[in-house]
Computed example of a mutant assay.
Amino acid sequence: MDLSSESPDRPTAPTILVGVDLGLPHFDAELEELGLLAQTAGLQPVARVACKRKAPDAALFIGKGKADEIKALAEELGATEILFDQALSPAQQRNLERHMDLPVNDRTLLILEIFGQRARSHEGKLQVELARLQYVSTRLVRRWSHLERQTGGAGVRGGPGEKQIELDRRMIGDAIKRTRERLEKVKKQRNTQRRQRERRGAFNISLVGYTNAGKSTLFNALVKARAYTADQLFATLDTTTRQLYLADAESTSGAGRSVSLSDTVGFIRDLPHGLIDAFQATLQEAADADLLLHVVDAANPNHPEQIVEVQRVLHEIGAAQVPQVLVFNKMDALAPGQQPRQASDLFELEGIAVPRLFVSGRTSAGVPELRRQLAQEVNQRNGDAAQAPQNPETHETTA
């Protein structure tokens, strides 16, 4: 067991972080990302435990021996919660809580909690609520275990506790249905707004990337907006769209055009599928974009793995075929010896060479070059659309 103690003067919610190495390539042995997520949610890690297993234990995920060690450690440090880096099944979660006599949660619930704290728009709140309801619906036995003490009797409606669980399950099912219906209305409104942009011939660019890559900071630098930024995971969840004016680099008159630039929610490793489904309306901005600005935190040593994770999510939401420009951000955070030799080059992304630019959203270094690259991309794609063969009967471009 690899154990490292955190700062002893943490004031609230002492939590033990647990990660299990199952032989997967992305295992975070230091549990750094889980620690950042925990702090973002208001928890205070007091210790980190990493162990190896060939496969998860069916009952306790980590096995009885490790569970006993973590229980003893929690008693020693006064921890009030155990947090796992991997997703736990409802049965494993319930068994661990009974074994350790402490609340046990996993990465999925932690991300849901953060999203619930950060959602601001009506749509964002609905999306988080739907994902939370879907998660809780599979854990009713754990959440309502106190009902097992109830007993039925003459004149008692609902019978024993098991019957109450069925009633709660039905109530949550109804809540899921209502939330889906409300989200569907919001989705129709978004589609209407999207069609209006299409009729105006708007060129749509979406910022995508791993959480905390600096998308919102770069968004502010490009459009002079005041979107909320912070050095933390999931600082912003709601999509923000602004008009970005791009001067035509080939024109001597200063002519150009405006495009729509959208700042979207950041991605993360093991993003719960329920959240991907719930945020489909928001993530649709990326799938329907004409161009994606894939923002990468160049100062993060794990940025190659983060690029792979973003590509995986783009495939899930149907945006893998949208052209990309790779933006290596936070160059101001790199040491002098790590600075790139040139401002731009080509980067192979899933077998395709895409433009890559090096910028700093915080200092605006490289942002003018990024604007020129975007103007070239817009001109090129507009030119390709104009030269596409026309269907003589419908006067529409053919694929």
Rank of each mutant, 00 (worst) to 15 (best):
S344L: 04
G366W: 00
S216D: 05
K185W: 08
A79Y: 00
E250N: 13
A299W: 07
Y228M: 12
N382Q: 13
A87C: 06
R169N: 07
T252K: 13
A298E: 01
H26K: 12
R10D: 07
L207D: 01
E285F: 02
A343N: 09
R182W: 12
D68P: 00
R118K: 13
L88Q: 01
A353T: 06
L3C: 10
G35Q: 06
L43K: 02
E113M: 12
S360V: 06
Q311M: 09
V378F: 02
E285Y: 00
N300C: 12
T138I: 03
P392R: 14
E123R: 11
R356P: 01
D2K: 11
G116M: 07
V354N: 04
A388L: 10
V223E: 04
S145T: 11
V322G: 03
E33G: 00
K330H: 11
V136I: 15
R362N: 07
P25D: 09
R190H: 11
M171A: 12
Q232P: 03
N379C: 07
A202V: 15
V327I: 15
E181F: 07
G201E: 10
A202P: 02
G42K: 11
Q86M: 04
Q189H: 11
N302T: 10
V354A: 05
A50H: 08
G158R: 07
L292G: 02
A213V: 07
G256Y: 10
H303I: 11
V223D: 04
E123G: 05
V327F: 04
E75L: 09
E285C: 02
K54A: 13
K215S: 06
G153I: 15
R200M: 15
R94V: 01
T211D: 03
N329I: 03
V20M: 10
W144G: 02
G78H: 09
A255W: 08
Q92V: 04
L43I: 12
